[in-house]
Design a protein around this nucleic acid. Structure first.
Lengths: 229, 229
DNA sequence: AAAAGTATTTTTGTATCCACTTATCCAATC
DNA sequence: GATTGGATAAGTGGATACAAAAATACTTTT
């Protein structure tokens, strides 16, 4: 498999970086639940550092929308209202659509093969845990995005994905149907095969917008605890 | 004029917030130039606080792409390579296109009138300083975006705008032609008048993508000092 | 017994301090 | 004269200390 898409597994250069990754991972596997308060001192003790780098990590996570920070009131894990969930998918749809369109010139047989392998891997992961499935799912989407060769775009999309990941996990746990998911993503691949960039863009947009309603039921209706409490 | 679009002028609740705004404003008016190193101690002294809140403000600015932070090497004002400039406009084009599409249902005669007033204001500001023009220009675009009623989308677009503002300022200073700019934006307004959301989306996309080449000459070619030095 | 006010504890925000990394400058060497 | 090496200065990252704010528990009052 070509190493087009890889997340750098470098060791953290600073404590802040370590704290950032630690919390990010914890959020990813669902260790912290939406609305939960994150106490800097506890996390610092967990990793073996002082509160300070953790605070700074909070800031970064906050501007990515993963946590909410209010003055003198600490840090809580962000939750999405229904409106915010939809908004996130709207943004992802146009950004990933763009990514697909720009990626098209860089997509050949090899890349399609890679994606099909990722699709298999995603399905296999779905057998074991929803957490694994979601991670593979992100890998699939991320792999397409990375073919666009647009670092900022890739980063932005991945940040948006991270925000909705918890809900995808819950959804996957609840309805456990990798079936429809596989077909959906196969559609995307065949759109890539067509070679028509605008067509593929539209298919990706539709695919993403189609996902939002599925998660709607797992989100707090509206105007509640989106900022924590 | 309807107060659909307003930047909250609240007093900063924390020192970090104050530092953030201070630096953001300084970047906006071009007080710090691209590639320049920001020394936390100096800025802290300027505002009358310690380095710590300034450091935290750096993190926020970094994740918005306004500065670059490297371990043990401090904070430098971000500059864009040509690729990054184009990428930023690509992202803005689809996001602002989305904003326009979603805003359409909320646009009536009153809103159009407001926008025309803003267009006038923008032109008048163009007479005095490029800095004022750029700010009014952002106000115009921001006003349209805010009609979409999508907070996260609005914030994201405004962050992308902030990154290219310095180059728009330089461009405006160099070629000083509010003429073409006015026509361009009038086109956007008439697209809004059409009531066709998809059409308006496309017009906005084209308007934004058309801007990128104008700024290309003011950007460091490629692969140079995008991270500082 | 409920409500309001008060005291206590917890937690946050900021300043200061120390260790370590990076940059600068100067001299010695080729 | 240019280059390398090393001393010195400057700056960064992180920990601790302290003050202010918020949350909590506890009275007191009605």
């Amino acid at each position: 498999m070509s190493a087009a898409f890889s997340v750098e597994p470098r060791a953290p250069a600073t404590a802040e970086e370590e704290a950032y990754r630690h919390i990010q991972r914890a959020l990813r596997v669902g260790r912290y639940k939406s609305g939960e308060r994150l106490i800097p001192e506890d996390i610092a003790a967990e990793i073996g550092m002082s509160r300070m780098p953790v605070r700074e990590a909070f800031r970064r996570l906050a501007s990515e929308g993963l946590v909410v920070l209010r003055p003198n009131r600490g840090c809580v894990v962000a939750g999405l209202t229904l409106d915010e969930l939809n908004e996130t998918f709207e943004m992802r749809s146009v950004l990933e659509g763009l990514a697909v369109r720009l990626a098209m010139p860089n997509i050949g047989e090899d890349e399609i093969d890679d994606l099909e392998r990722l699709l298999d891997r995603m399905e296999r992961a779905g057998q074991s845990s929803s957490s694994d499935w979601v991670i593979r799912h992100q890998e699939f989407h991320g792999s397409i995005c990375s073919l666009s060769q647009r670092p900022k775009l890739i980063h932005q999309i991945s940040a948006l994905h991270a925000v909705v990941e918890p809900y995808m996990r819950i959804w996957f746990d609840d309805v456990d149907k990798p079936l429809s998911a596989r077909e959906e993503h196969a559609t995307v691949i065949s759109a890539l095969r067509s070679g028509d960039a605008r067509h593929a863009e539209r298919v990706m947009q539709d695919h993403i917008l189609g996902t939002a309603p599925l998660l709607a039921e797992f989100v707090t209706p509206n105007r509640t605890m989106n900022t924590g409490r």
